[in-house]
């Protein structure tokens, strides 16, 4: 479904990604692991079209996404829930959600999608007229995910969804992600929390210094000493 090959990207003259290879198939929940600075966020931003690439290819289904902006990525069905949640702080929950479905592709079904998303996250339904800035980190994370769902994604990419959340909210966020995946949504998940993301995912990639250094089935990655090395820098 998502095919990334030989991808080189970065900020200005600084190259972060060095020939990244990554694949996500229909229905999978794939974890992308790596320490802070390994290049996970850069990779996700580049896939989403927020950052330009200097070499390599990104394709989705049979759509070529290399060098296309976010407008085309959303059109194709890839939606990124960014690190730090990035909700619109001075807008209500409802307005945030409406914006999630503002793209011309999902727009015609927006009212129905909104009802479905609010059913999925009853807490957001209760808070629909509350300003996003006044909510807790966990609630904002939920809003960010719900806002992403409003665009009717075929592939939902999440960057550090558990970052800065209370343990209970982390559990709840992951329960929601597992449920969405079980319903057929393909998910690519970047996490520093190895245990959690490997438990939730079917396959995983480990990133180090802008390269994919290890890939495999999640249960095997969990026991692979190289995974630990990538995190701790030594065995």
């Amino acid at each position: 479904m998502l095919e990334v090959s030989g991808l080189v990207a970065g900020y200005g003259r600084i190259t972060i990604l060095r020939e990244v290879e990554l694949r996500v198939d229909q229905g999978e929940l794939v974890a992308l692991l790596g320490v802070n600075g390994a290049g996970k966020t850069t990779l996700m931003k580049t896939i989403a079209g927020l950052l330009p690439s200097t070499a390599g290819r990104i394709s989705f289904g049979n759509v070529e996404l290399t060098g296309q902006g976010t407008e085309r990525t959303v059109e194709a069905g890839i939606v990124l829930v960014p690190e730090g949640r990035m909700v619109f702080p001075r807008m209500t929950v409802r307005e945030n959600l409406l914006l999630g479905g503002v793209h011309p592709r999902p727009r015609p079904r927006r009212d129905a999608t909104l009802r479905r998303v609010l059913d999925l996250f009853p807490l957001l339904a209760e808070r629909r007229d509350q300003k996003a800035a006044t909510m807790s980190g966990g609630e904002q994370q939920m809003l960010a995910i719900a806002r992403g769902l409003m665009a009717e994604p075929k592939l939902l990419i999440l960057d550090e969804p558990s970052l800065g959340l209370a343990p209970l909210m982390v559990q709840e966020t992951y329960a929601a992600l597992r449920r969405l995946n079980a319903e057929g949504l393909t998910i690519l998940l970047a996490e520093q929390n190895v245990k959690l993301s490997l438990a939730a995912s079917t396959r995983g990639y480990v990133m180090e210094n802008g390269r994919i250094v290890l890939t495999g089935v999640s249960s095997e990655l969990a026991h692979n000493p190289l995974t630990r090395k990538a995190y701790l820098g030594r065995l």
Partner: peptide, 23 residues
């Protein structure tokens, strides 16, 4: 309106607005 919300979205967080597919 959607137009107004998109304007406010760009003002409040440009990257997030781009991620919604807003042109």
């Amino acid at each position: 309106t959607d137009f107004g919300r998109q304007i406010r979205a760009i003002a409040q967080n440009r990257d997030a607005a781009a991620l919604m597919g807003i042109r």
